[in-house]
Simulated assay, not measured.
Amino acid sequence: MISSILDNDFYKFTMQHAVVKRFPKARARYQFINRGGHQFPDGFAEELRNAINGLAQLQLTRHEKTYFAATCPYIDPTYFDFLQGYRYDPDEVMVRQQGRELQVAVEGYWYRTILWEVPIMSLICELYYQMTGQQRHADETVMLTAREKIEKYRKLGVTIAEFGTRRRHSYAVHQLVVQALRQYGENTFIGTSNVHLAMQYQTKPIGTHAHEWFMFHAAKYGFKMANLLGLEHWAEVYRGDLGIALSDTYTTDVFFTQFDKKLSKLFDGVRHDSGDSLLFADKTIRHYQQKGIDPLSKTIVFSDGLNYDKVARIAAYCRGKIGFSFGIGTNFTNDVGLPPLNIVLKMTEAFPEEAQWDPVIKLSDDPGKHTGDTETVKLAKQILMIPE
């Protein structure tokens, strides 16, 4: 199911590099959240445990290291040496099952545990479909579906990246999808978040950072400083590369109060991941205009539950106002005739150096996507003056 250590999302490696440089003593805890209330078959935890144990055998090959270093010259050579020596430690992961309910938790140094989220989620998805005996579409149909989608997007004149590792049906389906996108998406398909498949199909690995980067900064520096210092530290590590800023960890409105003129000029754009996409576009355009920056010189990467109709609506609205691109996940990698799983694995606590375990939360622009301890969510809203 997972045969390469690079079978993971690009932003996990870019964040790991930054964590190694800036927060090597920090610790983190993650919890599995079954948003869809899926019922897991008997023996699922045992099978998942075996699959997780198997990941300990993975290591960065010489060929993978050469590819990764050549593709990402903005990452320090010392990081690739570190990654070559990195091994997954299954002892960092707890897996239990009570009846049909699955429990998964991860704990350890942040620079190590940061790589667990995506492969565990993809393993859960693939094992679920295997153990429940659900039959997907044939390979030819999977490829045809991806081909038809990318050809429709090409007619729209938009650029599309594939972001679907976490909730893919399976590795085999993911391969077929990227193959079809690469083959039929010329000038439209710009890359994949999956580094292994980017290498395999000679396309670009796409991504920057995730919510956990800012969630940790809140635990270390406080909610009011999380966005500002998160972006400052990112810029110190990457010096202008990887310049798409994630905006909704503590709501977009709060983000834009801290996205000052320096950062607005330095970063190439922002990523939309929750809430109304057209309202977000308006806020982003207005923010750049107020800073004296031409919105057409910047890009919004839309990545929230996209399908063709939503992409078409956003593109029509933004064209001529601001640059835009799209990252599509589950709609590519789990459109095989079966219901996709609605699951996440999120950081829940952080332990900065010389501190204590603190709960971490996310306040997205969609209240249904808030994650974390209820009391901490309430406290953060009070501190950030976010109305109930």
Results as ranks from 00 to 15, higher is better:
residue 6 L to W: 10
residue 13 F to L: 08
residue 17 H to G: 00
residue 23 F to C: 12
residue 40 F to T: 07
residue 40 F to D: 13
residue 63 H to N: 13
residue 68 F to C: 15
residue 70 A to F: 00
residue 74 Y to I: 00
residue 98 Q to E: 14
residue 109 Y to V: 10
residue 110 W to P: 06
residue 114 I to M: 02
residue 115 L to W: 07
residue 120 I to P: 08
residue 124 I to W: 02
residue 130 Q to M: 01
residue 136 R to H: 06
residue 137 H to E: 13
residue 140 E to A: 12
residue 142 V to P: 06
residue 143 M to L: 14
residue 145 T to L: 14
residue 151 E to A: 11
residue 161 A to H: 01
residue 163 F to A: 09
residue 165 T to N: 14
residue 171 Y to S: 12
residue 173 V to R: 04
residue 182 R to K: 15
residue 187 N to A: 13
residue 187 N to V: 11
residue 191 G to D: 07
residue 195 V to C: 11
residue 200 Q to N: 14
residue 201 Y to C: 11
residue 203 T to M: 12
residue 210 A to Q: 00
residue 215 M to K: 08
residue 236 E to D: 14
residue 236 E to F: 01
residue 238 Y to L: 14
residue 247 S to F: 06
residue 252 T to V: 11
residue 252 T to I: 07
residue 255 F to G: 13
residue 255 F to L: 09
residue 256 F to P: 03
residue 260 D to C: 04
residue 267 F to V: 04
residue 267 F to G: 06
residue 269 G to Y: 00
residue 269 G to K: 05
residue 272 H to N: 15
residue 274 S to Q: 08
residue 278 L to R: 04
residue 299 T to C: 10
residue 299 T to S: 05
residue 302 F to R: 00
residue 306 L to K: 04
residue 306 L to R: 02
residue 312 A to K: 10
residue 316 A to I: 00
residue 317 Y to G: 13
residue 321 K to P: 12
residue 329 G to D: 05
residue 334 N to E: 04
residue 335 D to W: 06
residue 335 D to N: 09
residue 336 V to F: 07
residue 345 L to R: 00
residue 349 E to Q: 11
residue 354 E to N: 15
residue 357 W to I: 08
residue 360 V to S: 05
residue 364 S to V: 02
residue 364 S to N: 15
residue 367 P to W: 03
residue 372 G to K: 01
residue 375 E to H: 10
residue 377 V to D: 08
residue 378 K to A: 15
residue 380 A to C: 05
residue 383 I to E: 03
